[in-house]
Design a binder for these strands. Sequence first.
DNA 1: AAACAAACAAGAGCAGTGCTCTTGCTTTTT
DNA 2: AAAAAGCAAGAGCACTGCTCTTGTTTGTTT
Lengths: 241, 241
Amino acid sequence: MAKQTPKAPEKEPKKAPGVRARVRAELTAEIKAAATRQLAVDGAAGLSLRAIARELEMASSAIYRYFASREELLTALIIDAYTSLGDAVEAADAAHPREEFAPRFVSMAKALRSWAIDKPNEYALIYGSPIPGYAAPQDTVDSATRIPVALLTVMVEGRVKNSTASRTSSEDDSLAQALDGLMTFTGRTIPPGPLAIAVEAWAELFGLVSLESFGHFENAVTDPEAFFDHAVRTLADRVMG
Amino acid sequence: MAKQTPKAPEKEPKKAPGVRARVRAELTAEIKAAATRQLAVDGAAGLSLRAIARELEMASSAIYRYFASREELLTALIIDAYTSLGDAVEAADAAHPREEFAPRFVSMAKALRSWAIDKPNEYALIYGSPIPGYAAPQDTVDSATRIPVALLTVMVEGRVKNSTASRTSSEDDSLAQALDGLMTFTGRTIPPGPLAIAVEAWAELFGLVSLESFGHFENAVTDPEAFFDHAVRTLADRVMG
DNA sequence: AAACAAACAAGAGCAGTGCTCTTGCTTTTT
DNA sequence: AAAAAGCAAGAGCACTGCTCTTGTTTGTTT
């Protein structure tokens, strides 16, 4: 009669990397894989634990030993998506010499768009409507950070390198305040002017990709890729030219 | 035994504006109002026909006489949202003399942001993740068009007015092709250069609002309103200055 | 080797969902 | 007055996330 308290399953058995832990990890991965497959078809809203259980030929209740709730599964998928996108963007960055800032930025931007167009539902999962009542765990926030940080870093460094010494204006103070959270991100202090320009560019990049991916270019921007390439080049010129 | 075929309810009884049609319209409005109320709390995913029926103290099956499906109700809410936002933006536009393009644009942009921050779930409904499997009816597309058209119009007109005669470059041809769908929007032909700049600005505007509304400025942009105001001014300068 | 505890899979069941069909009643039109 | 159309409600289907209980398997500890 002892109440069994399944509760939230432990992530790590601490010590033993025994057989059991291995098959557990494998099944966890299989569940995530099936979920990702389903996500690509039906989107986040259509993600059904029971459907996953059916596909894996197990009882729906058994899934709860691996993910405490649907929400926790979604969190895992969100982190995976951020990681996948972050890897893609950083790989695109690494393909260019460090000091060629503009090509690095253009390459990263294109990688971002390609990923988004390739996996629209995963893109919507991380950059679309927030799920109401879903408080993003710190894990997701951490993995989210990579992408804007990588982009902003290139832009800011590219700008301060290529620009004449920036004189600080009176407006810079209020800007520095408004962007306070970002200032301390990379450790050292960033001049507010270039930071603001970089954030604006990040917003435009995000806007271009989201507008296209979410269907708002339909019947309007006939050739989204061509326009995107043009816009990104313009962007690079403006920020770092 | 005659099969009753409730099917999709007719929108208009064609002739009689009788008593029945009036109470029908009223109930339809009440359902939409309850839905909007629920939308503001739980978002689109949490919209439940049964909950609406409970709130209105009617049988859930009765709702199907007013909306053939949950999807149709959502469509009505989407159109309402576009209309509400469109009205807000156009009102902000109308508050300035026609020839003052930059102030008009800034005013519209701020109205857009205010509306989005005020009604995050309605904003997410129209500008967030598309609902998978939901083919947007033409009605929604039509009401969606207003907003970008209004913004692009101001920007393009403001630019061609304030700029020296634009010489057409070789790149303009490919741009014109990429933006073909937009060219024919306002009737007369638009120079591709300014059009591209305007679309880029629209993307940045959309990006700024969405990033903030969807929570991506958390712990980064400390004062989103101040930053937005700065960015919009910069934007206006760049496009029409 | 035996005993114990933890991990696990499965089934039944609850409360909720969108949606359909059928049954009766009311209102409008003929 | 009769026929037709509009309407509300109830029962029911198939689905969902999630919980609890039962019985089994596995890994560790005495």
